[in-house]
Structure formats: C-alpha cells, structure tokens
C-alpha cells in the first residue's frame, strides 16, 4: 500500500485512491449511523430528565417545557428519598470497596507469588465455586443474615458484597504473575520476610491494579439490583439507588415519577460513566490478558 505512489500507472493509482476514499466514506457513514443508534437512548433519557410535562408516552423527543425541577424534586420528595439512597449506596460502596480490595489483594498475592502445598487445590476450588449461578444461594444467604440479625441492614449488604470478593482474584493474580520473581528473591537475600516483601515491594509496584480493583468493587453496589431487592424488600430507608429508581417505574408511580426517574438515572450515571472511561484500559487489559492466556 505504501508502495502505490511508486507505481508508474497513474490512471490505475487514481482508481485505487478513489476506491479507498469511497471505502473510507462508507465507513464514516456507517460509524455515524451506529453512533446515532447507540447514543439515542442515552440522549433520549437526558432530554426526558429536563421535561416539564409529566407522563411517560410523548410523541416528541425535545421537551416542550424545559425545566430543572426533576433534579430538584429528587432531593425533596416526600415519597422517594433519593438523597438517602445515594448516601446508603455510598456508605455500602465505600466499606465494601475497602474490604473487597484488601481481600482480593491478599488472595491474589498469596495464590500468585507464594508457593504452598494446597495452592493448586485452592485455585481449582475457586474455579468451581465461581461456576454456581451467583444468586442461586441468595435465599440461603438471606436466612443466614436473618439469624445474625443482619437482614435488611446495610451491614448485611456490605457483607454480601465483600464476602465473595475472595473469588474475584483472577485479574489481579494475572497482574502479580507478571512482576519478575527476581525482585522477591533479591529481597529475600537481603533478609526480608514475605510479609515485608508484600508491603514494601509488591504493593508499591501494584498501584494500577489496586486502583482497578478499588474502582470495580466501588462501582459494583451502584449497579446491583438483584441482591439489594431481595435483601431490603419494602424496607425503604435502606434502599440503594438502583432499587429505588427501579421502584419509581412501578405501575402506581410511573406516571408521576418517570421524569424524576430520568433525572435520577442521569445524576447517578454521570460519575460512574466518568469512572468507567477512566478505567477502561485496565478492563481491557484484564479481559484480554485472560483471553490470550486461555
């Protein structure tokens, strides 16, 4: 292709270039159409969140009456307490994030860089445990929490989100696997214990994976509906954002609250979208790392 300019036949070259230009134009058109399709629902959501008229079914996209009231209503509505949901989700997300990140780092470090007798067995057990459908044992977990008196509480929710974290070691284990072993050995010769190697050598090198793990575990509770709906049920003061927003679309509320729902969805989506765009590189590295290794 780079050699085309050296070809003597200018007529052929012209035809070739025209063909390329046509192909590129076609790609631009296809991409633009696809972007329109992909962005439309998000754009529609954004428009609805600024709509002054109540109700769901409207035969126009742009609001007839632009307003910011839906966002205001979110935070001072007597029926739905969006502020409370955000606070709940934030508390749960922060605690779950700290606990899960610690757990994941500990497990993946041990399974990646330490050698002990039961290591292979543990790896296989982790693989098998991960194959059970996530919410199959949801009812049992609820029972368990109930006997501890933690059902319907935020503490119980934190435990649910972070107790299983030990199984999510794959991505960070993959990362630890790539750190050269010679580092450990050099430190060992200098008299460092494994504990010191972990804290002083490996962790400082692992900032990217720590950030990735923390972000994914932080985002998790914001998007979870299944567990939280089963755990909190009608206990509305402990609802999280996802559960609350879902309830706004129930039949009895949807007419009055649809635009409020849109505002709430936009409000929550903005920070999470920014976080995701920030960490997409890690996401790709994590998934493709596993894919290439098989």
């Amino acid at each position: 292709m780079t050699n085309t300019s050296m070809q003597p036949n200018t007529q052929m070259q012209g035809g070739y270039a025209a063909k390329r230009r046509a192909a590129n134009t076609a790609i631009y058109i296809i991409l633009s159409v696809m972007v329109l399709i992909w962005i439309f629902p998000i754009f529609w959501l954004l428009m609805q969140s600024f709509r002054g008229e109540t109700g769901v079914s409207k035969n126009y996209i742009f609001p007839k009456q632009w307003t910011f009231n839906n966002y205001v209503k979110l935070f001072n509505d007597e029926h739905f307490h969006y502020g409370q949901w955000i606070l709940n989700t934030f508390i749960v997300a922060v605690v779950a994030c700290v606990v899960s990140t610690l757990v994941i780092l500990m497990v993946s470090y041990a399974l990646s860089r330490l050698r002990f007798k039961s290591r292979k067995t543990l790896l296989n057990c982790g693989l098998v445990l991960g194959m059970f459908p996530g919410f199959m044992s949801m009812a049992a977990t609820y029972n368990l929490m109930n006997t501890f008196g933690l059902a319907k509480s935020l503490v119980g929710l934190v435990i649910v989100y972070s107790a299983g974290a030990g199984l999510g070691y794959q991505v960070s284990k993959g990362f630890f696997d790539t750190i050269p072993r010679s580092l450990d050995e050099a430190a060992k010769i200098d008299g460092a214990t494994k504990n010191q190697i972990f804290w002083r050598i490996i962790l400082p090198l692992s900032k990217p994976i720590i950030v990735y793990t923390a972000l994914t575990t932080f985002i998790g509770p914001w998007g979870d509906y299944i567990f939280v709906s089963y755990f909190m049920k009608q206990h509305s003061e402990n609802w999280t954002v996802a559960l609350g927003l879902y309830n706004m679309l129930e039949k009895e509320y949807i007419f009055d609250y649809f635009t409020t729902f849109c505002a709430g969805a936009v409000f929550i989506a903005i920070p999470i979208t920014i976080l995701f765009i920030f960490m997409q590189k890690f996401y790709v590295a994590g998934v493709t790392g596993g894919a290439v290794k098989g």
Partner: peptide, 29 residues
C-alpha cells in the same frame, strides 16, 4: 506466620468469609 506461613495469614480471613457467606449458603441450597 509473617514469613514461611505468610499464605496462612493472608488467606485465613478471606477463606473464612467465603466459607461462611458463600460455601455454607451453597451447601444449604
């Protein structure tokens, strides 16, 4: 437990959590 058995230190809490809140519910189910 900080050196040759460091894996025990690292893994005991996560595995206990898993056993109680993950394995036990699965066995129950």
């Amino acid at each position: 437990f900080l050196d040759d058995r460091f894996h025990v230190t690292l893994l005991s809490v996560p595995i206990t959590l898993l056993l109680i809140f993950n394995v036990l519910p699965i066995i129950f189910t």
